[in-house]
Design a protein around this nucleic acid. Structure first.
Length: 107
DNA sequence: TCTTTGACGCTGA
DNA sequence: ATCAGCGCCAAAG
């Protein structure tokens, strides 16, 4: 059957993001083997609101910038959640982003 | 069925 | 180092 598991894969990875950690669209896409489709990852997240336990706020772009914050119920919710996890956000950007960066692995 | 969109990333100037 | 433009690929209308 080989349907498009793209979204499904993305959701699984995002769900695996540990508390206090963040990842990027590019890393997720790369993990799926389609690093060129980094945009699709974010697009998939758009539907993530339909599913629970999808910490979309832990997913940022490769610059560590909260690009998708405007897509949240409130544009401040995303940084609020991140800061709530101990991640410092300044100017919509994660401080020491690289320090909080989490890379999806097969565990 | 075809067109437009899109929470990104990279290369070139 | 900074700015701008193009490319990717899948999903929804």
């Amino acid at each position: 059957m080989k349907t498009t598991n793209f979204y499904e894969k993305v959701y699984q990875i995002v769900r695996r993001i540990p508390y206090g950690k963040v990842t990027t669209y590019g890393l997720i896409a790369a993990h799926l083997g389609v690093k060129s489709s980094s945009r699709m990852v974010g697009y998939a997240m758009n539907s993530s609101h339909s599913l629970p336990n999808i910490p979309a706020h832990r997913v940022v772009n490769r610059n560590g910038m909260l690009t998708g914050k405007f897509h949240f119920p409130t544009p401040t919710l995303m940084e609020e959640l991140l800061q709530n996890e101990g991640i410092r956000v300044k100017n919509d950007m994660i401080i020491n982003f690289k320090n909080y960066l989490w890379i999806p692995e097969n565990d």
